[in-house]
Design a binder for these strands. Structure first.
Length: 467
DNA sequence: TGAAATGTTGGGGCG
DNA sequence: ACGCCCCAACATTTC
């Protein structure tokens, strides 16, 4: 088949949360098809229900798209950037290019699934082969079911079911080269720069630049280094925020610079290679963290509005404190007078991530000691995390708040001072982010820990009794 | 992937 | 030698 100008009908690859060329099932399918490949990214800030990325996420997205574009050019293709409502923009592209096929890797959010379904239907009606692939999860949510055919609501049996399901596929290579499709002049494209994703006035991204190199190349270096050098100590040291013992792969998975399949098999291969029991245990613990990611997506699939609605609806009547903006701001800015909390919030603001143990502590502090609705915390994380994930972020906030799937029991209130003594015993982490700790410049706590704990338990008591 | 309150135990000081 | 008390240290229960 040919278009009017004699060129073959292209296969369109729509990139979304999969900004990589290796182990990308949609890209591979397009390359295999023999058709010229047209790679596209759509910046859609118009469709209903799509959640606009936060500021830190936009920064990361800019750089990751830029590298993806360069990688595709090396292979012989280009990344076409479009702007507008996905359904209209993709539909127009298919018509203008007389595309033969449309490929993508699936998304799992409510609005995303509605949009993708509508596009798939109209593409097929127009004679375009539209095919979706599993590229971002180890286990598709609808394949992991309880004996009754329902979704799992508890992590442990969920993960056990995953582990006894067929093993996730081995990751595939990047295409060696691509036959890049030509774009008709009539198509209105923009550049990554045109999207205006970077902060300008002021440019607050200096800390992010120091902490990160977005993009697929650095992602692979990071994965290799972690698996080869750091996996052995992972189990014992991952809870110590002052030690660099975590994988720091979360933004890589969020943006799909790495697929979970690449991470899974890298860790498994390391475990098989040398049979050190320390590595074996660490690998199991680490893979369990991938399991929580799978469970969060599983939960998002079942509860599309997880970012705004309590999974346990009895929490809808929870007696949150009246919101004092100064209190929320003190938490956001790391000025609560609680050293571990302030250290975490400042790490977040500077680097776009926070150590996982500390995330639990600051979240517990906001929700329980300050009695501030978890949605405020979720939104702040959404805006400031470079790994802000549509599934993980709301899932984990609801987990801490007690309203979520397999949530922490309501009475589990972290004591941030005790947590500091346990997990940052030498104060390395706190001093790194709160240098004025233990000086007169450091403020008094904005709440009494003992008293606010009692108040939290009383508040949660009202929810419990209404069950 | 808690913390605090409460209960139990056992060693040592002491009359 | 014995009972009593104190109090860590650990275990269990409760929130």
């Amino acid at each position: 088949m040919s278009t009017d100008d004699g060129s073959a009908r292209p296969a369109v690859v729509w990139f979304r949360d999969d900004l990589r060329i290796a182990d990308n099932p949609a890209l591979s399918a397009a390359a295999r098809s023999g058709a010229p490949v047209l790679c596209v990214y759509v910046w859609d800030d118009e469709s209903d229900g799509l959640r606009p990325p936060g500021a830190a996420s936009r920064w990361w997205l800019h750089h990751s798209l830029t590298e993806l574009s360069a990688s595709l050019e090396r292979l012989g293709a280009v990344l076409t950037v479009l702007r507008g409502p996905s359904e209209r923009v993709i539909g127009e592209l298919l018509r203008e290019t007389d595309a033969a096929a449309l490929f993508w890797n699936r998304r799992y959010g409510g609005a995303e699934r509605r949009i993708d379904e509508a596009i798939k239907t109209s593409a097929r009606e127009a004679g375009v082969e539209a095919t979706s692939f599993g590229g971002s999860l180890l286990f598709e949510p609808w394949t992991i079911r309880t004996g009754l055919g329902t979704a799992f609501s508890v992590y442990t049996p969920f993960w056990r079911a995953c582990l006894s399901a067929p093993e996730p596929r081995k990751p595939g290579p990047a295409p060696r080269s691509l036959d890049g499709a030509r774009l008709p002049r009539s198509t209105h494209t923009v550049t990554v720069d045109d999207l205006g994703l970077l902060p300008t006035h002021p440019d607050w991204a200096g800390g992010l630049r120091d902490a990160w190199t977005p993009g697929e190349t650095a992602a692979h270096e990071q994965l290799t280094r972690f698996v080869e050098d750091d996996l052995a100590a992972y189990r014992n040291e991952r809870d110590l925020p002052g030690v660099d013992a975590t994988s720091r792969l979360s933004p890589r998975l969020r943006w799909g610079e790495l697929s979970p399949h690449q991470v899974w098999h890298a860790a498994r291969a390391r475990r098989e290679r040398d049979r050190d029991p320390e590595i074996a245990q660490s690998a199991t613990t680490f893979l369990g963290e991938l399991g929580w990611r799978e469970f969060a997506y599983h939960t998002l699939f079942e509860h599309p509005d997880v970012a705004t609605v309590n999974i346990h609806r009895e929490y809808d009547s929870f007696p949150w404190a009246r919101l004092h903006p100064t209190v929320l701001r003190a938490w956001q800015q790391g000025r609560t007078g609680i050293p571990l909390v302030d250290a975490g919030m400042r790490e977040l603001w500077t680097t776009g991530v926070m150590h996982n143990r500390v995330r639990m502590v600051v979240a517990s502090f906001l929700v329980k000691n300050l009695l501030i609705d978890w949605r405020h915390g979720e939104q702040w994380f959404w805006d400031t995390l470079v790994d802000a994930d549509p599934a993980n972020n709301p899932f984990n906030w609801q987990w801490v708040a007690g309203s979520g799937a397999d949530a922490a029991p309501y009475f589990r209130v972290f004591n941030p001072e005790l947590q500091r003594e346990k997990f940052d015993p030498h104060g390395d982490y706190v001093r790194r982010w709160v240098p004025e700790w233990d000086t007169d410049a450091y403020p008094e706590p904005i709440v009494d820990l003992k008293e606010s704990r009692r108040a939290a338990l009383a508040a949660y008591e009202t929810v419990k009794s209404s069950r």
